[in-house]
Design a protein around this nucleic acid. Structure first.
Length: 524
RNA sequence: GCAGCUGUAGCUCAGUUGGUUAGAGCGCCUGACUGUGGAUCAGGAGGUCGGUGGUUCGAGUCCACCCAGCUGUACCA
């Protein structure tokens, strides 16, 4: 065999991918169960689609010959058609709905979770394979469908143990920013490039702050490493106008250049008034976009959604209007949502870590109709389970305690292996998680060390003495660990045999169960 | 993609202006203790110092390139 170091294959994991152990898996499972319970409660039904789709169904154009895997993992089928790993759960759902349109009763309320894949640079909470939990309402254009998604997102966060005030659901409408861009003269196809630059700049508000965004909207910005990012080249008036939409506090500006006059009303009679109230915020935006039909449409849509949320009792501490929510995915047509964690996240060296949003979504009225002639409105939302889990883990808010190990039946006398295996069978038949020690049984110490490392609650021992007396020894490892603190010498430790007792063979199951009950040990 | 920083034992790291045989803590294995986890003590294994090439009598240390990781930045359908 080729076992020398030169030829030995190196075991390694591609970057952005992780192996997951029992603690992670259990934590994910708990999160999934919690989210599913909320979605079911809201009347959503599960449906699942595969991880692979035809590339064109995902809305991605055919892969570039030079870089076929840019952003999405793609490959060619036997018949040379391009296939891709899904990069979200929304596009596959749209395909599923379009393909099964006859059999689906609209409005269709549905949820699913699964792994999705993105071929991007990984970072904290950013993986190339990660889990999303998605919910959608297909076939309703009502703002009530959007409002419901927002409320469900808020409820889900709280169900996951993230207290009110530690998260916020942010709502925006693409049309508000479209209107803003049009108002400052960036409408029309000839300005598409600059519009994109402006939207990218706005998207960075949470990282760079208002000043950083202003620089990006203007001449450009130089970061700490000295790297220069070219700006959008807007003039000060335009930047002021955009900035009026950026803050959670709304400033009414008095720049006449962008006011049509018609329909513009003063806000509380005072220019430069600040507010946190979403209704006031929206009325200011409404005034700013008075002469702009697209922008007013967007404001009206937000007004409808936020009213429904407020009437249902969801206030600014849970759902807010925020014009800086851009969202990258192009298929969103109007309302967009984002859930942000407000908790401070620090890495192991105490440095702040930015996780960004842990969930997002929006209305995608064009996605299903791509496959059909008719318009099919839809709105939905995805929770980034993997990212949220990584964030909660980092701030120590995730119960990562591994489940207790099994009861271990030790092997004292190799010739009596069958007897020990029979004991294990009895325990298992009684519903107790248990196993036979399968390592080298040459001494008891190793077997107990193994059980200790397995986090076993107790072990079963039967040597020749016990066998002769028709008994088994049960050693309570949890109790024993506590007793260990008081014992200093090894001699004493071994002679006292802490937390160990003998019972008749036929009482094995009962005695083990008593030990488990005493410590509240439960599996699954 | 671009820039900066970092690669030394399984893990966390030290290693002087370039100078003999590269260290520590933790972990691991063995023993004291052959019918019992922990603690203690003693011993042991484990390294092509990220890779390749160069400068030098001599390189973990200096230089070039490459690879990987981290951070920032860009992109993200």
């Amino acid at each position: 065999m080729a076992t020398d170091k030169k030829t030995k294959l190196k075991a390694r994991l591609p970057r952005g991918l992780v192996d997951r152990g029992p603690g992670d898996i259990a934590a994910t499972q708990r999160m999934i169960d919690t989210i599913r319970a909320v979605y079911e409660h809201y009347g959503f039904d599960p449906v699942e689609t595969p991880a692979i789709e035809y590339t064109d169904a995902l809305g991605k154009f055919l892969p570039d010959q030079d870089r076929p895997n840019e952003g999405v993992f793609s490959f060619q089928d036997d018949d040379e058609q391009w296939l891709s790993l899904r990069y979200d759960l929304t596009a596959p759902l749209a395909r599923h709905v379009a393909e099964n349109f006859q059999h689906i009763a609209l409005p269709y309320r549905t949820y699913r979770y699964g792994w999705v894949f993105r071929n991007e640079k990984p970072g904290p909470g950013r993986f190339r394979q990660f889990m999303q939990f998605d919910a959608d309402t297909v076939g309703s254009a009502s703002p009530a469908a959007d409002a419901e998604i927002c409320m469900m997102a808020a409820d889900t966060m709280e169900a996951l143990g993230i207290s009110r005030g530690s998260y916020v659901v942010k709502v925006n409408n693409r049309k508000v920013l479209d209107g803003v861009l049009e108002a400052i003269g960036l409408g029309g196809p000839e300005n598409a490039g600059r519009r994109l630059t402006v939207l990218r700049a706005i998207d960075k508000l949470d990282r760079l702050g208002v000043e950083g965004v202003r620089q990006l909207l203007g001449d450009g910005r130089k970061d700490e490493s000295g790297d220069f990012t070219k700006g959008a080249g807007l003039d000060d008036d335009s930047i002021d106008f955009i900035a009026a939409f950026l803050s959670n506090f709304v400033k009414k500006i008095s720049n006449k250049r962008f006011f049509s006059g018609a329909g513009a009303t003063s806000f509380m009679g005072v220019p430069g008034t600040y507010t946190r109230d979403d209704h006031k915020k929206l009325s200011v935006w409404h005034d700013h976009l008075a002469g702009n039909p697209i922008g007013r449409d967007g404001v009206q849509s937000l007004w409808d959604i936020i009213n429904l949320c407020r009437e249902a009792g969801y206030r600014e501490d849970r759902i807010v209007v925020d014009a800086t929510v851009v969202r990258g995915l192009e298929y969103y047509t109007g309302p967009v949502f984002e859930v942000e964690l407000l908790l401070d996240t620090k890495d192991e060296k105490g440095r702040p870590v930015r996780f960004g949003s842990v969930g997002g979504g929006g209305r995608y009225d064009g996605l299903v109709s791509r496959f059909r002639g008719e318009p099919v409105p839809a709105t939905g939302f995805s929770i980034g389970v993997s990212r949220l889990q990584a964030a909660l883990q980092l701030i120590g808010r995730l119960d990562a305690t591994p489940a207790p190990g099994p009861v271990v039946v030790t092997v004292f006398d190799r010739a009596r292996l069958a007897d020990y295996q029979a004991m294990v069978a009895r325990l298992r038949a009684a519903g107790i998680r248990s196993e036979l020690y399968l390592g080298n049984p040459k001494n008891m110490g190793n077997q107990l060390k193994y059980a200790d490392r397995r986090k076993s609650p107790c072990v079963v021992i039967q040597g020749s003495d016990e066998k002769a007396a028709g008994q088994v020894q049960i050693k309570d490892l949890i109790e024993g660990a506590k007793a260990a603190a008081a014992i200093a010498s090894n001699q004493e430790w071994r002679e006292s045999r802490p937390a160990q007792f003998a019972v008749a063979e036929d009482r094995l199951v009962d005695a083990v169960r008593e030990v488990l009950d005493r410590h509240g040990v439960r599996w699954g």
